[in-house]
Simulated scan of single mutants.
Amino acid sequence: MKAVRVHQYGEPPSLDEIPDPKLDGPLDVIVKVDAAGVCRTDLHIIEGQWAEKSGVELPYVIGHENAGTVVEVGEAVSGVSPGDKVILHPLVTCGLCRACRAGDDVHCTNSEFPGINRDGGMAEYLRTSIRSVVKLDDGLAPADVAALADAGLTAYHAVRKAAPLLHPGDRVVMIGAGGLGHIGLQCLLALTPARITVVDRAAEVLEKASRLGAHDTILSDGEQVQQVLDQTGGEGAQVVLDFVGEHGTEADGIAMTRNSGSYFVIGYGGKVDVPTIDIISREINVVGNLVGSYNDLVDLMTLAAQGRVRLATKQYSLDDALTALDDLDGGRVPGGRAILTS
Rank of each mutant, 00 (worst) to 15 (best):
L153A: 01
Q49Y: 13
V70Y: 08
G95A: 02
V205D: 09
T154G: 05
L322Y: 07
D144A: 13
G169V: 08
D28S: 00
E112A: 14
H64C: 07
K135T: 14
E112D: 12
M174L: 13
G139K: 15
L185Y: 02
K85S: 11
V133R: 09
T276A: 14
T154E: 11
D34V: 11
A3M: 08
Q186H: 06
K53L: 14
E207N: 09
I130C: 04
N66S: 14
V73D: 02
I279P: 01
V240D: 01
Q224Y: 06
G10V: 00
G178V: 02
A36S: 14
R40F: 13
D319L: 12
Y316E: 09
L88R: 06
I130R: 14
A149Y: 01
V33A: 07
A3R: 05
P168C: 09
E124Q: 10
I279H: 03
T249M: 02
R308P: 10
A51K: 15
A162R: 04
D150Q: 05
L91M: 13
H44S: 15
S220I: 10
L126D: 04
V240Q: 06
L58C: 01
A158T: 13
M1S: 14
R337A: 07
H247G: 05
A203I: 11
D319S: 14
L27P: 00
V61I: 15
Y9I: 06
R160V: 10
L148Y: 13
A190E: 10
L153F: 03
R40Q: 11
G330S: 15
E11T: 15
A76I: 08
Q226W: 01
K32I: 04
G288Y: 06
V38R: 03
P142S: 04
M174T: 04
D278K: 13
A151I: 11
G25M: 10
